[in-house]
């Protein structure tokens, strides 16, 4: 489903990614762990064609991203670390706009059902998004992904800044999406959350993938000690 092969990216002198190769099957979850500056955000930017690699390629659903980015990105959804959205518009309006851009026109009940499915409380629908908490805005982000009927969901630090309750809910939501066949790629610091998901975990250091393992094969302590050991 998602295949990164030998991705390399350089910023000036600095090598940000060094021959990174990852493969995620359909319905799989991939969590990328790493320090600040390890190359996580660069990977996301490459995945979404925001920046171009020096070498290597990204394949999504068997198609090369760089050859036809617009077509390929049609099945991808993205939730940035800070989902700012348009603060002066409410959840409905934001969702409607982003969906229409993706070529999808929904009726009001349909939009409503996406928001509900993403877990946004009904009473919040009509309020401007500027007054939402981060967790709520993230749910709108999920709704955007749901409405796009994306096959691949890319998340950048999705749980940072969320309280444990919201964070748990979020993990549940991801797990559910994965079980419906959505592939999920996320970069995170949140070791604890990673453990809860049934996911592949990759540890990145200085642009290189140091370790690849299954999250449920380890206890939390094992994961943490491994992370500290490898990443440093």
């Amino acid at each position: 489903m998602l295949k990164l092969s030998n991705l390399t990216k350089q910023y000036g002198e600095k090598l940000a990614l060094d021959h990174l190769s990852i493969e995620v099957p359909a319905g799989g979850i991939f969590c990328m762990l790493g320090h600040n500056g390890a190359g996580k955000t660069t990977t996301v930017n490459l995945l979404l064609n925001f920046v171009q690699p020096i070498s290597g390629s990204v394949e999504i659903m068997g198609q090369n991203l760089h050859q036809n980015p617009r077509e390929v990105l049609k099945s991808v959804a993205y939730i940035p670390e800070l989902v700012m959205l348009y603060p002066e518009l409410n959840a409905f309006e934001n969702l409607e706009y982003f969906s229409r851009l993706a070529g999808k026109r929904y009726s009001k009940p349909e939009l409503e059902s996406h928001l509900k499915k993403a877990g946004l409380p009904t009473e919040a629908f009509k309020r401007p998004v500027g007054r939402y908490s981060k967790g709520m805005r993230q749910k709108v982000g999920i709704a955007v992904a749901l409405a796009k009927q994306a096959k691949l969901l890319v998340l950048d630090e999705p749980t940072s800044g969320l309280d444990p309750q919201a964070s748990w809910e979020f993990s549940q939501l991801l797990q559910e999406l994965a079980s419906q066949g959505v592939t999920i790629f996320m970069v995170t610091h949140d070791l604890f959350r990673v453990r809860e998901l049934k996911a592949q975990v990759g540890i990145l250091k200085l642009g290189k993938l140091q370790r690849l393992l299954e999250s449920d094969s380890l206890s939390h302590q094992e994961l943490e000690s491994l992370y500290l050991q490898v990443a440093h």
Binding site: L48, V76, Y78, P80, V83, M84, L85, A102, V144, V154
Partner: peptide, 14 residues
């Protein structure tokens, strides 16, 4: 600045 630009581009606008 708000990050919505990324979102717009991923959603399919050039």
């Amino acid at each position: 600045e708000n990050g919505t630009l990324k979102l717009l581009l991923v959603q399919g606008s050039s």
